[in-house]
Amino acid sequence: MDQNNQYEVVVLFNGYSCNTEGGSQSNCTCTLIKGPKNIIVDTMTAWDGNRLQNALEEQGLKCSDIDYVVCTHGHSDHIGCNYLFQCAMHIVGFCISKNHYYFDFDFSTGKPYFIDQKVRVIPTPGHTMQDVSVIVSTNKGSYGITGDLFENKDDEDIWHTLGVDNAELQAKHRNEMLKYVDFIVPGHGPMFEARYIWDKRK
């Protein structure tokens, strides 16, 4: 097997979310996909630029080495450091752009956007109506990097209470994702095996 043509999924920062007396505190999970194309999924808040650059340097990469930025949706804790990646194609929800050019691609048809044969961006609306997720095939299994489609591994009883735009759609895409992948990288927690949720449902 050609190792140079393989992808590796590296969670740079685990997201979190918690309630406080004055509101809530949260940041998203930020994931690096290393391989033939280098891809960042969800870039945290605008105050995380130095942390993100340092984490990339630890992986032997600079911001200019990133080919794609994918933001699973447009909330501020998922798009804050997009400005760092000025050489990359940006996919923010259903919008695909580079520099001042916006590309015609209609995620609302349900079709995936293929970065290559092993990485695709799929529409998974529900949390917002323009949510997307990234599915990656690796030699260790398949990964779904889902943003807030999944809050964390123990969200089965709470996800629909978190201000979702369409709970029915989100439930549909959650169930489909669990069938597609071996591992899930959620929006606000550590990566987990998809079978964890199947086992809890038994």
Score class of each variant (00 low, 15 high):
W47T: 15
V10W: 00
V69H: 03
M44L: 08
C63M: 03
T20Q: 01
V164R: 05
V164A: 09
Q25L: 11
Y68S: 06
D67L: 00
A171F: 09
L12H: 06
I40G: 02
H75Q: 13
C81N: 14
I33D: 05
M191Q: 12
G147K: 00
T109S: 11
V164I: 06
F150V: 01
A88S: 15
V134H: 05
L169M: 13
A194V: 06
D67N: 15
I135C: 04
S133H: 07
C71S: 15
T146N: 09
C95P: 00
G110T: 11
I91D: 10
C18S: 15
C71W: 08
D116A: 08
S142C: 06
I135Q: 11
D148A: 04
L12P: 04
M89F: 13
F183I: 14
L149P: 00
D77L: 05
G22I: 10
L32H: 10
T124A: 02
H78W: 03
D77E: 14
Q6M: 06
T128V: 05
V10K: 12
G35C: 03
C95A: 14
G163D: 11
L12E: 05
Y102L: 12
T31G: 02
V70G: 00
N14D: 15
V134K: 11
T45P: 00
K153I: 05
G189A: 06
K200G: 08
V185R: 05
M129I: 11
T20V: 12
Q130A: 12
E193F: 09
K118L: 09
K37T: 09
V70Y: 04
P36R: 13
K118Y: 13
G80A: 03
F13K: 14
F114Y: 15
A46V: 13
S17A: 12
E57K: 10
S24V: 11
D2F: 10
G80V: 03
V136Q: 05
T43R: 05
H73W: 06
